Simulated scan of single mutants.
Amino acid sequence: MKTCVVIFLVLLANATTASEPLKIGITENLLNKYNTYLAGRSVYEIKEYDGNGARRSVIEVVLLLQALKAGGLNDPVEWVLQPNYARIKRSLQNGTITLSASSLWNYDIEELRQYCVASDAIVAEGEYQAGLFKLSTNPLTISNINDLPSLTAISVAAWIPDWNTLASLPLKKVIDANKWDTMIKLLIAERGDFILSSFKPTEDMGFTEGGYRFVPIKNIKVSLLGSRHFVISAQDTHHHEVLTTLNNGIKKLRAEGVINKAFTQAGFYNANVKGWQDLTQ
C-alpha cells in the first residue's frame, strides 16, 4: 500500500483545498529528520537555518517548499514515502510522484531526460564538499592519500558522484549499502572505516544517529563534481507550470541570499574546512 502524508500549503489568499495535490517523493528517514528539525514550526516561518537536525538534506526540503511558495504555488502538497533514492528516480520516471524532495545529481538526471525536467541548480557545480566520517570512538587518522589502501569505505552505488569519487581513490574496498540507513548500520558494526557525508553546523562538524556519534576525519575532505537539481516528472500534465514556479522561487531565494545563508548555517558550506587537504585534487 502506498503511504502518504498530506499537508496543505496556504500559499495564496485564494488557495483552495480543491486543487490537485502536488505529490512529492521523500524517504521516511528524511521525512522524520525534517519533522524533527521543524519541531512544530511552520517551514515558512524559518529564517535562521541552524539548530537541532540541520543538515544539507533537511535544509533542501525546507528550501524546496520555501521556493515553491516564493514562486506562487497554489496547491496542497502530498508526501509520498519512498524506500530509497533509486525508487525516487523510478517514481519520477513513471509519474507516481511529481517532484522529489531531495535534489538529484546532474548525472542521474541525464538518465531521466526523456521522462523528467530539472530545476535550476540548488547546489551549483563545485559547491559540494564532503568529509570522511567515522565513529567518534574510532581513533583512525589519515595524513594523506597513501594511508587509504588499507581502508574500506561504505556508500551507495546508485549515488554516482559519491561512488565514482570513492572508486577513484586507492581504497581496499567500497561496500554498497543500498541506502543511508544501511550505511550507518554497517559503520556501527565496523564493516567499514568511513562514509562520505556533508559537514554539519556543530562544533565537531559531526552528527548523531542511532545513538552513535559520527565525526569527520580531521584535515581530510573530498570534492564531488557536479550540480544538484530538483526534478519534476514530465508525466504530470502541469509539469511546465511546476517547473516555472519552482525556478522563479529558486531565483528569488538565491537573489535574496537565502540559499547561501541556509547552507552556510547548516554547515554544508563550511569555512572551517577551507584549508583541509582535498584527496580528489
Rank of each mutant, 00 (worst) to 15 (best):
M1C: 15
K2I: 15
C4V: 10
V6M: 09
N14M: 08
N14R: 12
A15D: 07
P21M: 13
K23F: 01
G25Y: 03
I26G: 02
I26T: 10
I26H: 03
N32D: 13
K33Q: 12
Y34L: 10
N35K: 10
A39C: 15
Y44E: 11
E45P: 02
E45I: 04
A54L: 10
R55G: 10
R56A: 14
R56W: 15
V61C: 13
L63D: 01
K69T: 01
K69R: 13
K69W: 07
G71V: 09
D75L: 14
P83E: 05
G95I: 10
L99E: 09
D108F: 05
E110Y: 05
Q114N: 08
A124C: 06
Y128H: 14
Q129Y: 11
Q129G: 07
A130D: 06
F133M: 09
K134Q: 11
S136T: 14
L140D: 04
N144V: 08
N146E: 12
D147N: 14
L151S: 06
A153S: 08
I154S: 01
I160S: 07
W163L: 02
T165V: 03
S168K: 08
A177P: 06
D181C: 10
L187D: 03
L187P: 09
A189N: 14
G192M: 07
L196I: 01
T202C: 07
T202Q: 11
G206F: 04
T208V: 13
R213I: 15
S223A: 14
L225R: 15
R228W: 12
R228E: 12
F230M: 11
F230D: 07
T237W: 06
H240M: 12
E241H: 08
V242E: 01
L243G: 03
L243F: 03
G249N: 06
I250A: 00
L253S: 05
R254D: 03
G257M: 06
F263I: 10
A266V: 00
A271E: 12
V273R: 02
W276Q: 06
D278N: 13
Q281N: 08
